[in-house]
């Protein structure tokens, strides 16, 4: 479809306005983070800069031991995202590609599970986590509570619903002949799922991986309720620590929060290519 010149000019203007609106808050925070607190205290945030420095970033990085918390986030986010995608896609495959009797009920069960507010399940979950023992090499506390594994498991469980929902929707759009042809060739369920269906789901998987990474990485509810040792918490909840530490220094807190946003941005940029390649690959099948 070739849009007319007028409408594409209008679209361009609209998008530029939106771009500015969307960027302003972030750029303003960056501007504040680049200015010393003494200066903004005296002249306010909205004023011309007397000096722009990276001091706030440097101070935030060194004083908060951020590297350590980044690693914690990595230990939690990576396994949780991979595990969620694997489990959700295998479940979605069965309920959407095989004529399975309970598929609607199961789908509703999973999707509905995703509707539950985290707060509703936290109390029994906390008790459950205190009751599940883990070997000491997995958890210092010897419990599911206050362990990385505990955090990974709840993130997986909590995100499964949405992923199953999206993936099963996506898989339904794949032609049924795909499986039928493979069955004729004698391929088992596993082969059809792993070799045949999953590669076709790349766009959906890439989109979900991006979303999951940001959600799990940014989660702080599970982290603050299920991890009691400050040092074991991921970077986003450690930010709260920093916020407590420099209550009056908004500039430095803004700097720290901006640093903490970098990994999700990297994941997005990295997966965006995958994502777009995957998307165009998806479009050919109609």
């Amino acid at each position: 479809m070739k849009p007319s010149r007028l409408s594409s000019a209008a679209a361009q203007v609209f998008m530029v306005v939106m771009l500015v609106l969307w960027l302003t808050p972030v750029v303003f925070a960056l501007y504040v983070a680049l200015r010393p607190i003494a200066e903004t205290n005296e002249h306010g945030y909205v004023s011309l800069p007397r000096s722009l420095t990276l001091d706030n970033f440097r101070a935030a990085w060194t004083q908060s031991d951020m590297w350590h918390f980044f690693l914690n986030s990595l230990y939690i986010t990576v396994p949780a995202v991979l595990l969620t995608l694997f489990l959700a896609s295998s479940f979605a495959y069965v309920v959407s590609r095989l004529r399975f009797r309970w598929n609607i009920a199961l789908l509703i069960l999973f999707t509905a599970g995703n509707l539950l507010p985290q707060q509703v399940i936290i109390t029994p979950l906390f008790r459950l986590y205190l009751a599940i023992p883990l070997p000491h090499w997995l958890s210092e506390s010897g419990l599911m509570y206050n362990s990385y594994l505990g955090l990974i498991v709840i993130n997986v469980a909590f995100q499964l619903g949405f992923c199953v929902f999206v993936l099963s929707n996506y898989m339904k759009t794949l032609p049924a002949e795909l499986d039928e042809a493979a069955i004729v060739d004698g391929a088992g369920v596993w082969t059809r799922y792993w070799r045949l269906t999953l590669p076709l789901c790349r766009p959906a998987l890439a989109a979900l991986a991006t979303l999951l990474t940001t959600w799990i990485y940014n989660d702080f509810f599970w982290a603050i309720t299920l991890i009691s040792t400050g040092d074991k918490r991921p970077v986003t909840s450690a930010l709260a620590n920093l916020q407590g530490q420099f209550v009056a220094n908004q500039n430095m807190i803004a700097a720290a929060a901006l640093i903490a946003a970098i990994p999700t941005l990297i994941v997005y940029v990295a997966l965006q290519k995958q994502f777009i390649a995957g998307l165009s690959l998806g479009s050919t099948k109609g």
Binding site: M15, L19, T214, F220, T236, A254, A260, V269
Partner: peptide
């Protein structure tokens, strides 16, 4: 379009703490 897509998606990727600070400043 790549730039628009990235910028418009940006808020989804930011942590709650950052969003809180950003809008407090606004």
């Amino acid at each position: 379009s790549r730039i628009y897509q990235s910028v418009l998606f940006l808020p989804v990727m930011l942590s709650l703490a950052l969003i809180g600070i950003i809008w407090e400043l606004i």
